[in-house]
Nucleic acid binder design. Sequence first.
DNA 1: CATACTAACGCAACTCAGTTGCAATAGTCA
DNA 2: TGACTATTGCAACTGAGTTGCGTTAGTATG
Lengths: 149, 149
Amino acid sequence: MQNKILQTLKERGYRMTKARQGIAGILSEAGAPLAAADILGPLDSRLRGDDIKKLRVNKTTVYRELEMLRAENLILEVDFGDAIKRYELADSKHHHHLICVGCTRVQDVEVDAPLAATERRLERQTSFKIERHALEFFGLCAQCRFPRR
Amino acid sequence: MQNKILQTLKERGYRMTKARQGIAGILSEAGAPLAAADILGPLDSRLRGDDIKKLRVNKTTVYRELEMLRAENLILEVDFGDAIKRYELADSKHHHHLICVGCTRVQDVEVDAPLAATERRLERQTSFKIERHALEFFGLCAQCRFPRR
DNA sequence: CATACTAACGCAACTCAGTTGCAATAGTCA
DNA sequence: TGACTATTGCAACTGAGTTGCGTTAGTATG
């Protein structure tokens, strides 16, 4: 089994369908969080390498598959504040994102020590029990700041 | 002029319409970020205090007004990760939100010193120019953690 | 390999927040 | 008291995501 997501799903009793293999493959190779539309587009071209020509996957299937993978804790929902659900692999180290407002390039960054201390302070001060946080940075990447003429 | 938003708008040449006065009033009195739907609901009852009975404001008007106020930097868009745009007054001190996942109660909190240092570090390390960040904390408030029987 | 069980799929119709085009209305200023 | 036009309301639309339901295709078993 080439892919960690697929392997885990199989262990948990899920069937190995073509749509599932395609979606898991795309998620595993993505360099940034993906939306359903990112998966709907490239899917058939990706699977063309197998002996399957022009596999079409319905958007309902993609949405259901993403929701199932999230419920199985294999992917995490990421929010860039634009009303589109994006997902990334759950097995990586906890991190945040630096998003270029010019070209939408995304870079992973680590922040945690200061946030952990802040959360403990907030819990003392507010009597909330903090479960999670959402933190994204928005700015301009080097290419967008200094475009080559 | 009772209201700071309305006063600023008047200075900038906007007309003082009934819908505008109602929307500005609601935003000014809100204790938490508001969505368009929060404004569409209470509007007519709020304005009933004037000699206007049952003023109806169309949702298009509310969305347009909110977008205008944001473009005029009088309100800020706040993102709770649920695909709904919320807004709060822009004149308050920069802060973040602690959102109860049980009852959706929202509490403002301050965080900034550690984040400012983190942003400087990230700018050095990544060559991004950071313009802004989005940070929200999600958890359970005291009432939802310890409900009275 | 045959077949039966049912997870998974595809389609169409729907929801819901938000947007757009355009004609009607109402602030504001002279 | 107009006239000018910003603002509004309506209806139709968009786009991401969801739901119901009949069909398809993995998988286990014989």
